[in-house]
Design a protein around this nucleic acid. Structure first.
Lengths: 182, 182
DNA sequence: GACTCATCCTTGAAAGTTGAACTATCTACG
DNA sequence: CGTAGATAGTTCAACTTTCAAGGATGAGTC
């Protein structure tokens, strides 16, 4: 949480001489306040949703997101790697997660015929049922935390801002896998 | 991640009759896009900072935040509960975290003289040193992900928005511990 | 075909988190 | 005092996440 207050610790070398590490560009007071508000709000919301879903659906938010992704995919299934990408998690993490969801009976694994290394994760009927049962509560929680409290303009602004930030963080940016082209 | 697509699953009971569960207020397309952008950006950023700090400072973002909090406290120390509150984590989590940080030599525990149940977590000199060494990189990462990409207006907007959201999530709101007063 | 290298996914161990149970202490009140 | 109930912090077990390693298959090349 309250990050970036490091300035206090670093009131040294104001007139950085030659051969000195460049004085980092600290955050101004305003920026610091924004950054703290950001951390504060995002952690509170994530915690809130995690608890809400753990209580009502018996799984953390990330797992819920996986089921949602599957529910929207053709035939309710996705290759593991696709699912991992769209959920922004590592394949390793996904493996564990799917194993758990499979135990719950909400997801089933299927071999990919065209690529013997491949696996599909498919949402089961029970998985669909869990979503049907718990989605309303989840939507309500999101609405209550975000959309019911922000003006339409603010919602728009938030959307723009988040897209800008995401762009800058996209796994090493556009052409990440083609560094030799830059 | 891509949450809220549940609408697809629930195109039932449009004209909810009497005795029917109220049709939940789904998110509209715009709201859905904003929500996804939000999830996308926040998880990417948190992952990014976690990796950055794990690599450069040998600890996750949350732990780093704890050190920062301590660095700003009088005598560089805080009661466990205070620290937990300001970092928005549970006392349990904090116990584990401080144990780990103590092993690293960055934090030291001290008994509270006035309350024998109490403990202070105090930042050690080595803890200060870690911050001094790693803060610039961390600030740079934050700047690069957020402040360098947003216009001043957007930064302001973001601050307002995040404060509004945080308010609504503040542990049961103002007077949470005084429900009988409402 | 046989190599080499990339890709798909899983595994196991270590690290971190959670929620409930537990100890010790404090506070209030009769 | 003495007892009931709150508070501070830790601990345990179950669970989740990460990181590094590994097995299997695919794709390109000679």
């Amino acid at each position: 949480m309250g990050d970036m207050g490091e300035k206090d610790l670093m009131e040294d070398a104001p007139g950085a001489g030659p051969g000195t590490a460049p004085e980092p560009r600290w955050l101004g007071d305003d920026e610091q306040r924004v950054w703290r508000a950001y951390l504060h709000a995002t952690t509170l919301l994530e915690d809130h949703l995690d608890r809400q879903l753990q209580r009502d659906a018996g799984m953390p938010h990330v797992y819920y997101g996986l089921l949602v992704q599957l529910s929207q995919a053709p035939r309710r299934r996705l290759r593991m790697t696709e699912l991992a990408k769209s959920a922004k998690i590592t394949r390793s993490r996904l493996s564990h997660a799917v194993a758990r969801l499979e135990k719950n009976g909400w997801v089933r694994r299927e071999d990919c015929p065209s690529d013997k290394r491949g696996q599909f994760a498919q949402l089961t009927d029970e998985g669909v049922e869990v979503l049907r049962r718990t989605a309303p509560g989840h939507v309500a929680a999101v609405r209550q935390a975000m959309f019911d409290r922000l003006s339409p303009e603010q919602v728009t602004q938030l959307g723009v801002i988040m897209r800008v930030m995401a762009e800058g963080l996209e796994p090493a940016g556009p052409d990440a896998d083609l560094p030799w082209l830059r």
